[in-house]
Design a protein around this nucleic acid. Structure first.
Lengths: 219, 219
DNA sequence: TATTTTCTCAGGGTTTACCCTGAGAGCCTT
DNA sequence: AAGGCTCTCAGGGTAAACCCTGAGAAAATA
């Protein structure tokens, strides 16, 4: 039996994972060895497992695709990655590339792209779907592999488990003292978590937190 | 050869269509006879073609899923429809049902839901994925098939213009005094509007307000 | 015209959010 | 062993949110 290309898919829409899975199963040379519904779970999975290619959605709750690649980079993990993206904002494309992404497929693109993309990236090549290429992309690809791009990142620092706990309770409209009660912690601790959330998410107050939570499906 | 269930899929993400297509192809009794990437194209397609079941995404450019169903309703077209939705806002669920949708699947749900959903809806039954059901949904489904339900939509008192102004500024993370400044009103007035918003939307604090605003596209 | 709704503002109050600094304990990685 | 991160907690403070009651003026509606 020939060695198959091992693929891991990360996307918060299970139905898309199942769909891609079915697509991939039509190809003998590729097999799906795992999937994740959040960025955090991707990190967890790769601690104990290996895949040849990671297909990574950008918009995910808790920790987004950018955060995943940053985490990999910080840990000096080299993971061949194809980005799945709803929108092809050149800035984001640039950032993902500078973080090591080797492929880029728009969700609006045809599903047929996925198989050649996996194969190309697996071989060490790069792959970009037409929409990406024909957008402003070409202008950036050559200059984008610098360190600066990483720093100017608009992305959000990854939230810790505790912070997510607190954020979830905040969105349930609980006050700081109520949260402290529920988690058996002091008010001061919860206040610290709140402050850290403000800093990380870069918002002014609890309203920004709530909006972030809803938009990122943490509710 | 046995008659297959003819399905049309509408979603602005081609990759999801291709994925679902692959999923559906694993089932002999169902075949994909067409797809659309925008709401407008759905309308066009159904002018000259027929499908037994329509799988319809809500978020689409040009004309969204709600618009599609409204168009069908205006033209007295009865089309068995399954809604594909990223979020399960009860209000939207309710509206889609009153517009004739017979099935409802969250994108976060498992892909295995899709086949039984198609079969159920084809047989004239209804189908809702677990996430939808287990949300506040059950409370609404029985009362929502009347014209009245559309008017009394989700039971929230209508907001006044001023209240919406204030709510918008709140979601921009402005404080009461900042809002007062911007609108040339006193703090006391803004506080009153806030209090009325809490009552009408039935939330405890500004967090509830923010969540409501995001889910109802007031941001 | 009469009534309701909306929009405005007030006094006076409690509670909560938010900001600053600092710090110890445990865990993981280098 | 050393550095980094997470999680925990503290003192002490200001600003803001939130709650109560009451009410006048204008505009929409009956």
């Amino acid at each position: 039996m020939i060695e198959k290309i091992k693929v891991h898919i990360a996307d918060d829409h299970k139905i898309l994972i199942d769909g891609l899975s079915a697509l991939i199963n039509t190809e003998d040379a590729i097999e799906l060895v795992g999937y994740s519904l959040t960025g955090k779970k991707v990190i967890e999975w790769f601690k104990n497992n290996k895949a040849d290619v990671l297909i990574l959605d950008i918009n995910m709750p808790e920790l987004d695709g950018i955060g995943v690649l940053k985490t990999f980079k910080n840990r000096n993990v080299t993971q061949k990655t194809i980005i799945l993206s709803g929108l092809s904002d050149p800035k984001i494309v640039q950032e993902m590339i500078s973080l090591g992404a080797k492929g880029f497929i728009e969700k609006g693109a045809a599903g047929e792209d996925i198989i050649p993309a996996i194969k190309a990236v697996y071989r060490g090549e790069e792959y970009y779907s037409k929409d990406i290429k024909s957008s402003l992309f070409d202008l950036y690809v050559n200059e984008s592999k610098t360190e600066e791009a990483i720093k100017s990142s608009a992305a959000i620092e990854p939230l810790t488990d505790r912070e997510i706990d607190v954020l979830k309770l905040i969105t349930r409209q609980l006050s700081t003292s109520e949260i402290a009660n529920k988690l058996d912690l002091t008010i001061k601790t919860i206040e610290t978590h709140r402050r850290n959330l403000y800093k990380k998410i870069k918002v002014k107050n609890v309203v920004g937190l709530a909006i972030y939570a809803v938009k990122n499906n943490i509710v």
